[in-house]
Amino acid sequence: MEPHCVKQQVQIDSITDSDISSNTRVSRTRGAACGIEARLQNPGTSPLAGAVGVENGQRRSQGDCAPCWACLRCGTISWLREVGVVKIRDVDLNLLRVFECVFQTRKVVEAAEILGISQPAVSNALKKLRELFNDELFVRTKSGMTPTQYAMQLAEPISYALKTLEIAIEASESFDPRRDKRHFVIATSDLGDMYFGPKLISHIRDISQDITIEFVRNNRPHIVDSFENGEVDILLGFRPDLITNMFVFRLFYQGWSILARKDHPIFSSKAPREDLLACRWIGVRSEGSGLASVNAELLKVGMDRNIVVWTSNFGTLAPLLAVGDLAACVPEKYTTVIDEAFGLKSMPFPVDLPKHSISSVWHSRAHNDPANQWLRQQVSILFKEA
Rank of each mutant, 00 (worst) to 15 (best):
C101Q: 15
E82N: 08
K127R: 13
N56Y: 12
L40G: 10
I117E: 01
N56M: 11
N134R: 04
V109E: 13
Q149R: 13
E110P: 08
I36W: 03
E55Y: 12
L137Q: 01
G57E: 03
F99L: 05
K87H: 12
D64E: 10
P47G: 06
C34I: 12
F133E: 03
V139G: 01
F99M: 07
Q62V: 15
Q58Y: 08
V91P: 02
A125M: 05
T76R: 14
T164K: 12
I88V: 12
G116P: 06
K127D: 08
A161Q: 06
E166Q: 11
R89L: 11
L72H: 09
D92E: 12
I88F: 04
E82D: 11
P67Q: 08
E131V: 07
V109M: 11
S118M: 07
C68I: 14
T45D: 14
V52L: 10
E82F: 02
L132F: 09
G116S: 03
A161W: 00
E136Y: 05
I77R: 09
N124T: 15
N56K: 14
F99C: 06
K87G: 07
C68F: 15
S61P: 01
T148A: 03
A125T: 06
P43I: 04
N56I: 07
Q149C: 09
I117R: 07
S78F: 04
V86D: 04
D92N: 14
E131G: 15
E110I: 14
A49N: 06
D135K: 04
L165G: 09
L154F: 02
V54P: 01
D135M: 06
N56R: 14
Q104N: 13
G75C: 03
L93G: 08
V139F: 01
L137Y: 02
C68E: 14
E113S: 14
S78W: 03
R106S: 10
A121N: 11
G35A: 07
V122F: 04
V91M: 12
T141P: 08
E37H: 13
I88Y: 03
E100C: 02
F103V: 07
C68W: 15
V122A: 04
V98K: 07
G63W: 00
T105M: 08
L132K: 11
K87T: 10
R73E: 13
D64S: 12
A125V: 05
K163C: 04
L137E: 00
I158V: 15
I158S: 01
C101F: 06
N56S: 14
D92H: 11
P47M: 02
L40I: 11
A49T: 01
M145Y: 03
I36E: 09
V86M: 05
R89M: 13
V122Q: 05
P43A: 06
T105P: 00
R97I: 00
G63C: 00
L93F: 10
E166V: 00
A121S: 15
L132S: 09
P67D: 04
F103I: 06
